[in-house]
């Protein structure tokens, strides 16, 4: 999965209000044996979507999902906790999401998401409650201004780590940035050992 730039997006929300949605829910471990970076969308939330025999569940909340119109996932607190698997943001992106909004997003997931062009947005509790209560509402997420505008309900602000933000907007490559520090790294290695 290549990193895609991100600046602004208007889309409807898809709401999963449960708290502690861990990366094993986002993509179960048995789908982690692939050595590729793409194609994980079909495994996204697999056990929420399919029964033990691999048949689509009639009761799945994802039956109401449309990848063309629902690019913003609104999730309960502590989204993305658990395993550090980067397959989780890969799966969400491949499935169709570009933004995850919650009151609280797990550290490693957040870091992985930012590196792949999936924007993790942490909003205040009141805004979060409003979003949870209005599934399908139209929301504009503006990374340059770090704002979330909810149709008819006003605006909220969020913070993204400044370097990650620049990387997303301007397409700066973090590995390129690190490779540019090679002189400092060599100096450190000489001094330290």
């Amino acid at each position: 999965m290549s990193r895609e730039p991100f600046s602004k997006l208007t889309s409807r929300t898809f709401v999963l209000s449960q708290e502690n949605i861990d990366t094993d829910q986002i993509i179960p471990a048995r789908f982690l044996t692939s050595t590729l970076r793409d194609g994980y969308g079909k495994a996204a939330f697999y056990d929420w979507r399919y029964d033990a025999n691999g048949r689509p569940k009639n009761s799945s909340i994802f039956n109401g999902y449309n990848r063309e119109t629902h690019k913003i996932l609104v999730a309960g607190p502590n989204f993305g906790c658990g395993s550090s698997r980067e397959h989780a943001p890969w799966a969400l992106l491949d499935f169709g999401f570009r933004v995850v909004i919650s009151s609280d997003i797990a550290d490693i997931f957040k870091s992985n998401a930012l590196k792949n062009g999936l924007l993790p947005v942490t909003v205040d509790d009141a805004t979060h409650r409003r979003l949870l209560a209005s599934p399908g509402i139209e929301v504009t997420v503006d990374l340059e201004n770090e704002s979330v505008t909810i149709e008819g309900l006003g605006e909220a602000h969020f913070k993204v780590e400044p370097f990650a933000r620049r990387c997303l907007i301007d397409g700066v490559d973090p590995l390129g940035h690190l490779l540019n520090q090679v002189a400092a790294i060599e100096a450190y290695e000489r001094a330290d050992r």
């Binding site: 550090s84 870091s111 992985n112 690190l178 490779l179």
Partner: peptide, 14 residues
């Protein structure tokens, strides 16, 4: 760390 960072450490040790 995530897989992208695994790549960072492999390439730069940082």
């Amino acid at each position: 760390i995530g897989t992208t960072e695994v790549g960072h450490v492999l390439a730069t040790q940082c």
